[in-house]
């Protein structure tokens, strides 16, 4: 079945088939024949260790990388035909804090909103709404460099949603922040998802997120290990108590540098 490039209803928000990506100086492919689908309105979790290929996949889907093999479609548009048709329909929350640190959250949002051709009262309303949703109103006029790490992450999220994208890509948006701020971010995302936005969320902190995911894909070394809803995966792996345990089971233990690894696991190979 080919990629449907017409963008009509019933088409997956994201559809990837046999995606392969080689970096010039890489020892192995970053993506090895990866295939997955994300339906419209899903809150989709993409789980993987460091170096599994999550950021590479997101970069391809956001048009940041254009040399790859296989097929990829976003919002029904085949990326091989060009990325311009979907630019205004997607947003990205990058892993790095991609904000202007000398500007305030309000100014950052006004800038990014302006890039999407929002202006005047419409822009001001959207900026105010995003600041309200992320609880940044009180610090909206403080320079980003002077905000706490958690508030910077919230501002990073707000900048991605100012133009109301249909699909939002989030590349480890809760990296390095405290539990309370993570909860705030997840709460905002859940609200966006209820409003119909499709979310592709990459992470390796899955404890507080798994209750929100409508579907999950687990990848490792560029290949898909498992995909499905949480109940489906539980049914397929009944010995795993939760998503985290399933993740460790499928990926063969934990990164020795990974802080999220539970102390109970003895090491690579994990419990049966």
């Amino acid at each position: 079945m080919g990629i449907d490039a017409t963008g009509t209803d019933g088409v997956n928000a994201i559809e990837v088939r046999n995606l392969v990506k080689h970096y010039p100086h890489g020892t192995r492919p970053a993506l090895r024949g990866l295939s997955l689908q994300v339906a419209k309105g899903e809150f989709f979790g993409l789980l993987g260790k460091n170096g599994a290929g999550k950021t590479t996949l997101v970069s391809i889907l956001c048009g940041m990388l254009d040399e790859y093999e296989g097929t990829a479609a976003v919002a029904g548009c085949d990326l091989a035909q060009g990325f311009d048709p979907i630019r205004s329909r997607i947003g990205i929350v990058p892993q790095n804090l991609a904000l202007y640190e000398d500007l305030t959250p309000r100014e950052n949002l006004a800038y990014f909103g302006g890039l999407y051709r929002l202006q005047g009262a419409v822009l001001r309303e959207r900026v105010a709404e995003c600041l309200r949703m992320t609880n940044l109103e009180a610090r909206a006029d403080t320079r980003v460099s002077r905000l706490s790490g958690g508030m910077q992450r919230l501002a990073n999220l707000a900048a991605a949603m100012v133009h109301k994208p249909e699909i939002l890509f989030l590349d480890e948006p809760t990296l390095g922040i405290d539990v309370h701020t993570r909860k705030d971010i997840i709460g905002v995302l859940a609200q966006l998802n209820r409003q119909g936005m499709t979310l592709l969320f990459t992470t390796h902190y899955m404890g507080e997120v798994q209750d929100y995911f409508s579907k999950v894909a687990i990848i490792d070394e560029g290949a898909l290990l498992a995909q499905g809803s949480i109940p489906e995966l539980r049914a397929a792996y009944p010995r795993c108590r939760d998503l985290e345990e399933l993740f460790f089971t499928l990926t063969g233990g934990y990164d020795k540098d990974d802080e999220a690894a539970p102390a109970a696991f003895p090491g690579k190979g994990g419990p049966a």
């Binding site: 956001c62 048009g63 940041m64 311009d84 630019r87 205004s88 997607i90 947003g91 990205i92 990058p94 790095n96 804090l97 991609a98 904000l99 202007y100 640190e101 990014f112 890039l115 999407y116 051709r117 900048a159 133009h163």
Partner: peptide, 13 residues
């Protein structure tokens, strides 16, 4: 280096 360029280029500009 800080990613704001890449983020800006995702937009229709």
């Amino acid at each position: 280096n800080d990613g704001t360029l890449r983020r800006s280029l995702v937009a229709p500009v």
